[in-house]
Nucleic acid binder design. Structure first.
Length: 505
RNA sequence: GCCUCUCUAGCUCAAUGGUAGAGCAGUGGACUUUUAAUCCAUUGGUUCUGGGUUCGAGCCCCAGGGGAGGCACCA
């Protein structure tokens, strides 16, 4: 790197802000090329990540200059020019380290070139490890090469980016300057990786099922609709993977799971993104109790793996996820919340009156079971802070779940609630093809009556059940919401790299 | 879809209805142990857009756009 004196191009680009800054840097590109330096070389060999340097030499006393050679790379985040010395802080994925650049070591020409590097540039360094008089661990370059020239300036070096719109639209810039953002996605990664390990240890096989579904099923939600040109048919982006995974249980795969991007054409909020990620698992020969046990193991293990602890802060309270999670029936929550004993077997008129007393709106077609769920949501849901299994959902709202062996109006179903949010959902799976058809037909009737989220009869799924599905326990966990819990953030956008946004104006 | 708040330099933020400013970044200069380096000098503005009120609008009013929060929706 031996650039010539600044050209007119570089100096005349005074003018205004960003455009001037970009043209100054673009002019530097030409200068570099003219002087024989490639501003975008193809590769660089490094011997250590910055954290590895810190691990290996972190205990060095102040004022020590080793002969230990290292080759490191990173982005220039800070630069302190002090005459014949330049201090620069570079950053790679593992951390930051200081470069101690001495004019006497690198030579006059290279020193001048380094002086003209910008914040944001990527550099590769070959040098030795040392500490400064104050004890700062540093790499002293013998040579320094530009790995990529940044032509757009970084956000504020101290405040980073705060405008949330810009943070999400320009996630790349957010990740460069905001450590919290990097940490959130690390936690998300560790959570998913932990799930895979736990599931593998129990003999689950990871599978991939269609994203494009010819029929909507497995949940109540409005789908995104698309069209296949060659086949000239409508297709729907999946709202759940349940029905495909249970087909695999019929096929004898016994234990399967999918980490599935799922799409629901509904509102955007701090808890909802139109595309989100669910982990769904199904295990032959198990029931809802096995699934609740698995849920606890998956989540506490993920917390341990991602955070190094099972204690998380929820609403200012320390909650140890490793303590057993209580199980309580939805009808008991709703009964306590309303002060009236509620059960799906009650006449719908009675349920409707209680709903009216609690300002809960009821659609005409709703039965007592659906109304009880609304009452639960109205009176109890948001007050559940610690992890709790809400169990025994009415049959009416659980078309794929098996009836409770002790109460024909309830199902062997649970939802996990933490911090007022639903994190997981599971049940003993309905495997009787005749009953399943009857439940589907009720769904179809609701759909015909105007319920846009109701399902319809999935004939192929019925056919699969007719071959015989063993007793099965199924589970779905919202990965985004779990990542929110573990990262301690209030918005789902903080754990989705590129959340859905309106197009830029 | 409804309500409230918000939008000023590349970034972070100021500015009673009265000349649009600071810090950082950038540019020029000094400095061989800095740590958000420091010091001196300095460039940089369609105040989201379009109307309106006013002698005068970044500020007040109306409409539109982006974003955030809440409500609704989301089993």
């Amino acid at each position: 790197m031996t650039p010539e004196a600044p050209t007119d191009d570089a100096t005349e680009a005074t003018g205004s802000g960003l455009e001037a800054e970009k043209s100054r840097r673009l002019a530097l590109l030409d200068e570099l090329r003219d002087s024989g330096t490639e501003p975008y070389p193809y590769r660089f060999d490094r011997t250590h990540t910055l954290d590895e340097v810190r691990q290996a030499w972190g205990t060095l006393e102040a004022g020590v200059e080793t002969e230990d050679p290292v080759s490191v790379a990173g982005r220039i985040m800070l630069k302190r020019d002090s005459g014949k010395l330049i201090f620069a802080t570079i950053r790679d994925r593992s951390g930051d380290i200081q470069l101690f650049i001495s004019k006497a070591v690198v030579g006059d020409d290279e020193f001048d070139a380094i002086k003209r590097l910008d914040l944001g540039d990527w550099v590769g360094v070959v040098g030795t490890v040392m500490t400064t008089r104050k004890g700062e661990l540093s790499v002293k370059p013998e040579t320094l090469v530009l790995l990529s020239k940044a032509v757009r300036p970084l956000p504020d070096k101290w405040h980073g980016l705060t405008d949330v719109d810009t943070r999400f639209r320009q996630r790349y810039a957010d990740l460069i300057v905001n450590e919290d953002a990097r940490r959130n996605f690390e936690i998300r990664h560790e959570t998913v990786a932990s799930f895979r390990r736990t599931l593998a240890s129990h003999g689950f096989i990871e599978v991939e099922t269609p994203v494009l579904h010819p029929e909507v099923g497995g949940a109540h939600a409005r789908p995104f609709t698309t069209h296949h040109n060659a086949l000239d048919m409508p297709l729907y982006l999946r709202i759940a993977v349940e029905l495909y995974l249970k087909r695999l249980i019929v096929g004898g795969m016994e234990r399967v799971y999918e980490i599935a991007r799922t799409f629901r054409n509904e509102g955007v909020s701090t808890r909802h993104n139109p595309e989100f990620t669910m982990m769904e698992s199904y295990q032959a020969f198990g029931d809802w109790n096995d699934v609740m046990d698995l849920t606890e193991e998956l989540i506490t293990t993920a917390a341990r793996d991602a955070l190094g602890t099972t204690v998380v802060e929820i609403r200012g309270e320390s909650v140890d996820l490793a303590e057993a999670w209580p199980r309580k029936r939805m009808i008991d929550y709703a009964s306590e919340g309303t002060g009236v004993e509620l059960h799906p077997s009650m006449p719908v008129e009675a349920a409707r009156k209680i709903a009216a007393d609690h300002d809960v709106f009821c659609e005409q077609r709703w039965g007592s079971g659906k109304i009880i769920e609304e009452l639960f949501e109205q009176t109890a849901e948001s007050s559940i802070v610690r992890p709790t299994f809400v169990t025994g959902h009415p049959v009416e709202i659980s078309p794929l779940a098996r009836v409770d062996r002790n109460d024909p109006h309830l199902t062997e179903r649970f939802e996990l609630f933490v911090d007022g949010r639903e994190l997981a959902n599971g049940y003993s799976e309905l495997n009787d093809p005749v009953e399943q058809r009857a439940r589907f037909e009720e769904e179809q009737a609701a759909k015909d009556a105007g319920d846009a989220e109701a399902g319809s009869v999935d004939e192929d799924y019925i056919r699969a059940l007719e071959y015989g599905m063993p007793p099965t326990g199924g589970l779905g966990i919202g990965i985004d919401r779990l990542a929110m819990l573990l990262a301690g953030v209030d918005s789902i956008k903080e754990v989705i790299l590129f959340p859905t946004l309106r197009p830029e104006a």
